[in-house]
Design a protein around this nucleic acid. Structure first.
Lengths: 333, 333
DNA sequence: TTGTACGCGTTATCAA
DNA sequence: TTGATAACGCGTACAA
């Protein structure tokens, strides 16, 4: 905040009224050509910029959108933030971003903050936001604001979910591994979100279908420390030495697993096959490169933004969308 | 935007005036205890939330900060965004984030947008923003707003730079490699930013000091495609088959290099040592784990925010700060 | 084609 | 301790 020049200052210097200045700024048709030129000149000379707070107040639209993410550092949704911000930006919206953590109460707090900031649309990055506390906060504080949730679904007249079929993706991975003769498959997951739960379900159902209903070995490790996943991998092999394939709930932890396997001299994929999930950019440059289930982050993110933008335009959008999820085979299987 | 309840609605329901409601909301002292209780009750019953736009307009402070980053997907500053947002949030500020790309004109455009949104502080993530176009835009559009630049420096009364000593960090790496008997060192860099330039300078001066002024082999690859860096690594070895150590300007491209070396059967570190830069979380789980120069992203990000927050509090802050940069040795050297 | 007057939802200054 | 009233900077009927 400074010695900001207002439309009144401009008006005075141009010898017109404030409303005329406003008309010029907003490209109103019926303004005298010379008047417009004169005002534009003064506007430029003074580096005038509109005060968005004032504009918002009278027009009742903030041209702001909100992005909520648990933690930009650790979730693969980080890249999604780029697509979402970029698309909003291209449509004239500025994005407020918040790292909310995984606690529903805390997440709900940010829903309220978004309402306070009068954002016109919201995108929730990831299924961590798929919980009743958040759902309720939306009902109370943002009942008329289109809210999209990436990789999740919640019931609500203004909530638009778009999910990747991770359940089916993991099943495909199981099928692939079974087809390659793997007998003893395991699954290692981090923090249980709805998304991770459906991956686990896909794993179990996959075993039933493709592995003669072999007993599902599933490890859940709820930790932010990557070392814990290296330990878990080793522990898994200690408990089940005949494991010949491991599917991880995320590429990042698959890489950690790969690292610990390599450390104890286990050959990948000869002895143990490894599958990640996200198809992140790190999967293709790891050693060995990582076979990964692609949960279509790019597509789900983009569809999420476009859905809320379409709703803002008054269009109709399906409240629940899902897209297929493929597997990208590389050297680790 | 909806059927928002205002302080007038609350006032009416509580049987008091709007100003009293405002006083309660803002915790003014001289309000009758029972009046306050009554107002608070009505406030809660109606899920009242303040309109920030209106508040901003009269108080002349937006409680918003701006974060500019070239591309959250591809710069290692992504993690910095977390620290910056988190710290701002803890101090009551909401963060507007924009992906600006590397074109100075475009970056400057966002400076203007930030001014329009009346942000109270700005953090620029990375030395890509260290250019005269941005510097000038700040002078014109944000002359009184504290601006911090992470890993860079620009002259200006309200610009606060904090850099890691990457020059010295790379020199240390050269020293380490020379100490291990490496004779033929090379450096591969991506897009030339001021930061990358100083890394290259450190490389050259390091060779002069520790490698008997060996001729510096430097490759610059300006591409967003990671495959180009794999190719560059192979090309380097073709042109200089006796290369026995490569320093990369970032971990991510070092990992790509590692991958291509591995692919053609070159042993790391036996035949070629590899050093990355950033000390990212991927360095410790790669195969082999990656020796990396730590440019203190956590520290520089946090110092950047804290500097602008301190300025907002009226405190004095050095406009130019630098912190040491260490090397973390792992299996790749 | 232009200017006047009012309102957006708050906080701040007065008087009472 | 409380309530009018006037800003904050802008957009927009309405009148001219």
């Amino acid at each position: 905040m400074a010695q900001d020049t207002t439309i009144y200052d401009i008006a005075a210097k141009a010898g017109v009224s404030a409303s005329t200045v406003s008309r010029v700024i907003n490209n109103y048709p019926y303004v005298n050509k010379e008047t417009r030129a004169k005002v534009l000149k003064v506007l430029a000379e003074n580096n005038y910029v509109q005060n968005e707070a004032a504009r918002s107040l009278v027009t009742q639209n903030s041209k702001m959108a909100g992005i909520l993410i648990a933690d930009v550092r650790t979730t693969h949704h980080t890249e999604g933030v780029y697509y979402v911000e970029h698309e909003f930006s291209n449509n004239g919206y500025s994005c407020l971003i918040y790292n909310t953590g995984t606690d529903p109460e805390n997440q709900a707090k940010y829903i309220q903050i978004l309402s306070q900031r009068k954002v016109e649309a919201v995108v929730l990055m990831g299924s961590v936001f798929q919980n009743s506390t958040v759902q309720n906060a939306i009902m109370v504080y943002l009942p008329n604001t289109p809210v999209a949730i990436c990789n999740g679904y919640m019931d609500g007249p203004n909530i638009y979910g778009v999910t990747a079929d991770e359940y089916g993706g993991v099943m495909k991975a199981v099928k692939l591994l079974a087809g390659k003769g793997r007998k003893k498959l395991a699954f290692i997951s981090n923090h249980i979100t709805p998304s991770n739960q459906s991956k686990i379900d896909g794993f179990k159902d996959g075993l039933r279908l493709y592995c003669n209903a072999a007993e599902p070995i599933v490890m859940e490790v709820d930790s932010g420390d990557i070392l814990e996943f290296e330990k878990a991998t080793l522990q898994l092999l200690k408990n089940h030495p005949d494991t010949d394939a491991i599917i991880f709930s995320e590429d990042y932890i698959a890489l950690a697993g790969l690292h610990s396997l390599c450390n104890i001299g286990i050959k990948v994929p000869e002895q143990v096959a490894v599958v990640g999930l996200n198809n992140s950019k790190y999967a293709e440059i790891s050693n060995p490169s990582l076979t990964s289930i692609d949960n279509m982050l790019y597509d789900t993110s983009l569809i999420a933004v476009r859905n809320v933008l379409e709703v803002l335009r008054g269009g109709h959008v399906n409240r629940r969308m899902s897209i297929g999820s493929d597997i990208v085979e590389r050297s680790s299987t």
